[in-house]
Design a protein around this nucleic acid. Structure first.
Lengths: 197, 197
DNA sequence: ATCAAAAACTAATAAGTGTTAGTTTTGTAA
DNA sequence: TTACAAAACTAACACTTATTAGTTTTTGAT
């Protein structure tokens, strides 16, 4: 019984979380109401509270799930014995794939984190800053080994992260390019630049 | 009398618009209340309506002011007799400077446009799409003239626009790099890439 | 079929929303 | 000083918000 119960709870909570991610992405956290969410799930608003703690808790779940995902990936990258370029490429491709496969959740974590209550807000931002610092360290190591151009490492990381993040605009133009092509092209532009020779 | 009156109205409305941009940027359009805005201006909420039409109208003013600004710039760029690279560089630098000098307004236009009511929403998105198309056309012309690598033009533009947009994250790290240095570095990365040779 | 728990429901609350109406204060031209 | 309009104010409205309390229905194992 306890087993089935928790299994069911898990299942329903996941449904709610998925709907919440889509709703928060589409309308924004503040403009999205619990009644909207209830409609999407097919239930009355108060019934949601049998499965979740609060609206804010939903946001926290989404944001930290994503944050942990990125942290786990850079853990792996740091352990790789590859060159700097391969490491950067791995990070870029991971970000791009996350954008394409978990669009709603990534979008919410990217745009709605400001509605996290303290101390989760500081927590989230610290995790993000830490991720950026580790990415910067990889770039700086590459500069020392002369695999990377001697441009400010912070700017390099900022440019990369911003570029991949911009894929949120891609989805409405899916016709234009295939996902694989887009990934290759964007990686190529960031690594080799726009100008010929 | 009429002269002074309109001059005063103009002045006060500008103050409100500036405060609104800052508030909408910091809290988001939906979470920002007219009472918040009134506090920022130093007045009671209903008094705002002596100067503005509605909360939505404020958003419209901010968004279209920015949109027109970008449109006006690409008008100029298209008329230039420079090469493709110079044109792209001009666009990049303009975006970067807008981000640095009119941060709140650019941020709001970038993030809060979805709260525009129809038909302004469609209007805004059309203007944006048109801008992107003109940028893409510049890149495609450059590819034909072999000044630009033969990468999908849409992806190139998407990458550029996303990268400069990411400067919204820069401001909390102003210590790291000077504005001029950042602009040069980001332009260099996009034009020439990250990898050495 | 029984029984307990899970999860749905209705009703309600206290707080906050944008905005209007109506009134008073402020500032300036005559 | 008078007169008038601009712009501030208070009070209020109609509505929406997240959430709680209390009750009924559904579910599934014995």
């Amino acid at each position: 019984m306890a087993k089935i119960r928790s299994e069911k709870n898990f299942s329903k909570k996941e449904v709610i979380l998925k709907s919440a991610a889509e709703l928060f992405r589409a309308k924004g956290f503040s403009a999205a109401s619990m009644r909207n969410l209830a409609d999407a799930v097919g239930v009355e608003a108060p019934s949601l509270y049998n499965h979740i703690g609060s609206k804010s808790q939903l946001l926290q779940d989404i944001c930290f799930r994503m944050a942990n995902c990125y942290t786990a990936h850079i853990d792996e990258v740091e352990l790789l014995n590859h060159g700097t370029v391969a490491k950067i490429e791995s990070i870029l491709r991971f970000h791009i794939e996350m954008m394409l496969l978990q669009f709603d959740e990534v979008f919410v974590a990217n745009h709605e984190w400001k509605y996290l209550p303290e101390p989760m807000l500081s927590n989230f931002l610290n995790q993000r800053r830490s991720y950026e610092k580790r990415f910067i360290a990889i770039v700086e190591a590459g500069i020392k080994k002369k695999e990377i151009k001697k441009v400010n490492a912070y700017t390099t990381v900022l440019t990369c992260l911003s570029a991949v993040r911009g894929l949120e605009f891609w989805q409405r133009n899916k016709k234009n390019v295939s996902a694989a092509q887009l990934e290759d092209d964007m990686v190529a532009i960031l690594l080799h630049g726009i100008i010929k020779n």
